[in-house]
Design a protein around this nucleic acid. Structure first.
Lengths: 364, 364
DNA sequence: ATGAAAGCGCTAACAT
DNA sequence: ATGTTAGCGCTTTCAT
């Protein structure tokens, strides 16, 4: 039920007493060699806006073989980490005249669907946070078709596979987090990782964790590493399990991401355990929310803006034929707040950047 | 730089030794009156998949005058409330064979852009959480063009304007929240609202707040109602201001949404004030995160799934020509957790649905 | 400076 | 059962 059809360039042409081609010429600016007289130009423009003319997207895309759209496929819109990256990408895309479409692909089926639509040419490029292994073959196929694809945060996609990948240095992050806890005197340090298997991301953090432990001469107990669902509940459940099952209890826990860490804080609260006194907690990602938890969350801070901006830049540069080197992993940094116990509760660190802003005007 | 073009139905036709039209017939199923022999059908299908053929989206949309896409314009992807609604909408859209594109429109300019693209026909319908006042004229224009639009959570859009609006009963929510606090014995109850002016949403909650106060025979002090930015910081700053400026201090605060409430909890924590003992806090929305804060957040729970599902249903029903009545406001409910002080900290209420799940398997 | 015309890849009505 | 054909609305080359 498409309803009455919109106004076309032919309508504009008729009203303006010119040919349809002229309308097109006028609307696509003077970038063409052929010129249009100022008078005609003005008349066409006026009438177009009078009629509320908007060029039809499908027709234009069909003809131009491009859409001016980039798709951002995200596995989980409920994870603010992705929201923050997408926001940065969005801004950059907009600045360069492209639209960014977010597509949630929470299941493999949804992901397949989304990729299928990419093949159909719904957009000129894509930023993909892959979920399933098979994504990479698919992405290469798309790249061959001229669709500019960039992977996010996936080591396996790497240079070998010829599709560029923007990522943070996750292994270093894992190492940093764990070293920090070791430096605070902790020995029984647990790590909660993402249950999803078909993915290297959990592995990288884990590698960093293991390296730090090894360097400290500690052999992590098998039960110190637990897999959980990547969610608030998952983090909470994992922490609950760690605290009620393992003897002796771990004194510190490093979690897969901030969202799970927030779940974990809640579990500890419910168990009556104090953070950081009884258990130290370190998250991963650096989402803004981490500055507002109780206690404030110590975490591994990713350059989220840069990740988003870089990803879209590579996509657009490719689209415009510019050379795009395989980017190197972006550095992460330790963001010390309260949950790790490195600072006293009352003394907020200067690295806690998200301090309360100035008071609002009262104005009922 | 579109790269080499993809495989078209003509390629498939050639290889299969049939006409291009036959390929189209086969791929669009048997819904047409004309038949295709099973043999031809099979051959075409095989070859199509061998060649990796995917129908071109632009061409198909141009011809069919429809895209099979619905756009969801959201003002703030960092607000989990929208993420939860969008997730529900997504699921329903998928189930009905449509794709849902999320578009972030954090500024008015971005919103205009997004609406412009709707006019161009990028999608068949749209769910819009308007930001600026002008949206409504624009939406009506789109509806006239046959694009099925649904507004979310905006009273002003209502029946009068002929564009359907799915919304929760915000005024009742404000009333419920405030009444609850009054019932707990509070008298100096503050309300933190959204600073944005061109919008009725803040107003509705405020109306509920004022009605409850009036019924209780209390005249709210002007300074009890403060406007703040809709963000974690905004909530935090507003709470800080309330607690450090007003004499005597309010003993309870009802905030515009859960995100601001979480910011507020943080400010109270930083000031050394105990929630709910020193100050009772009530949020609004019911996002999942509210069950994981410290203390757990008492809030006005919206039927977020239903909102998302209903919105997309109306869009799709309109698209399919089914009658779609103007929906009535969806009921909200008080979700009592810890931050209001109605229950002792140690005794979680049964309405706190998001309890920690069962323990995960240890499996390093 | 402007118009005529050829498609982009597909669907759907009509002809065979 | 299959092929032919006429566009969808636009861009762009080539004439004029």
């Amino acid at each position: 039920m498409a309803g009455r059809r919109g106004v076309t360039s032919i309508d504009v042409a008729r009203r303006a007493g010119v040919s349809q081609a002229t309308v097109s010429l006028v609307l696509n600016g003077a970038d063409s060699k052929v010129g249009v007289s100022a008078a005609t130009r003005a008349r066409v423009l006026t009438i177009a806006s009078e009629l509320g003319y908007t060029p039809n997207h499908a027709a234009r895309s069909l003809r131009r073989r491009s859409t001016n759209i980039v798709t951002f496929i995200l596995p989980d819109p409920g994870n603010l980490y992705f929201a923050e990256i997408a926001a940065a990408a969005q801004e950059e895309a907009e600045a360069r005249g492209y639209a960014l479409n977010l597509v949630a692909a929470r299941t493999e089926a949804a992901e397949r669907q989304a990729l299928e639509r990419l093949r159909a040419g719904v957009s000129d490029g894509a930023i993909v946070i892959g979920r399933s292994r098979g994504v990479w073959e698919e992405l290469r196929g798309l790249a061959l078709r001229g669709i500019a694809c960039v992977a996010l945060q996936d080591a396996s996609a790497g240079a070998a596979q010829s599709i560029p990948c923007v990522r943070a240095d996750l292994e270093s992050g894992g190492y940093l987090a764990t070293s920090h806890l070791l430096g605070l005197g902790h020995r029984r340090i647990a790590h909660v990782t993402d249950r999803r298997h078909d993915d290297d991301r959990p592995r990288e953090r884990l590698d960093g964790y293991l390296r730090a432990m090894r360097e400290a001469g500690i052999t992590p107990q098998a039960e110190w590493v637990v897999e959980a669902e990547n969610s608030l509940q998952g983090g909470s459940a994992a922490m609950h399990w760690l605290m009620t099952t393992i003897e002796p209890r771990p004194t510190a826990v490093f979690l897969f991401n901030d969202r799970m860490a927030i779940g974990a804080l809640h579990a500890l609260d419910a168990l009556g355990l104090d953070v950081p006194h009884d258990v130290a907690v370190v998250g991963f990602d650096g989402i803004a929310l981490g500055a507002f938890t109780h206690p404030e969350l110590t975490t591994i801070d990713h350059p989220r803006e840069e990740i988003g901006r870089l990803a879209i830049q590579i996509v657009l540069d490719r689209l415009e034929g510019k050379p795009t080197p395989q980017p190197s992993p972006l550095p992460v940094r330790l963001l010390v707040r309260q949950s790790c116990g490195a600072q006293s509760r009352g003394t907020p660190s200067c690295s806690t950047r998200q301090r309360d802003a100035s008071p609002p005007p009262a104005d009922p």
